[in-house]
């Protein structure tokens, strides 16, 4: 039951068939080169697209007015919208709290009647100090570096953050004595 392959016609050397093959390859390489070039261009354009022309991010460091403007025991919400920071003044000084919930990143609300920050997403609650006490938040709100500028204004640096669970609230910059 073996099957015999039909004999192939012998290729002729130096005939027009060979010329056709040669031109086929040159067309092929041209096609591949242009394909690769267009792919590279598209890739570059896509990569460029990932970096926006304009970033509407507020600067990490900002001035937050004079410390005398803050009242003891009142959470200052002036910079919540623009910089995502709460300023709190207690008996001994001032600290800047991040408005990002440490559970999943929603923005909690300050409930002054209850004296707590309460997250509307999963119910995490934080004391005015930023310490978590209810709901699923695993750790306290973060604090940002706070300092006094030469002109007597507060300077908040969001580039440096202080986490209580790592004992960083004791470090200089986490709390401005005033």
């Amino acid at each position: 039951m073996s099957k015999v392959n039909p004999p192939r016609p012998a290729a002729k050397r130096g005939e027009p068939a060979d010329a056709g093959r040669r031109s086929f390859f040159s067309w092929m390489s041209l096609a591949w080169v242009s394909f690769t070039a267009s792919m590279l261009a598209a890739g570059t354009a896509t990569a460029r697209f990932m970096f926006p022309n304009v970033l509407f991010e507020p600067p990490l460091t900002f001035r937050a007015g004079r410390p005398e403007e803050l009242q003891v025991g009142i959470v200052d919400e002036r910079f919540k919208d623009s910089n995502q920071v709460w300023l709190v003044r207690d008996g001994g000084g001032i600290y800047a709290l991040s408005t990002t919930c440490t559970h999943l990143g929603c923005t909690p609300n300050w409930l002054s009647a209850e004296q707590k920050f309460k997250c509307p997403c999963h119910g995490s609650g934080f004391y005015i100090t930023g310490i978590n006490f209810e709901g699923p938040a695993p750790r306290p709100l973060e604090r940002f570096a706070i300092d006094l500028a030469d002109d007597g204004q507060l300077v908040i640096d969001k580039g440096r953050k202080f986490q209580q669970e790592k004992g960083q609230w004791e470090l200089p910059g986490a709390y401005l004595e005033f």
Binding site: D81, Q84, T99, C106, T107, P120, C121
Partner: peptide, 10 residues
């Protein structure tokens, strides 16, 4: 949307 104002409840 406003990142500073999360609807309550969200």
């Amino acid at each position: 949307a406003n990142p500073a104002a999360t609807p309550n409840p969200s």
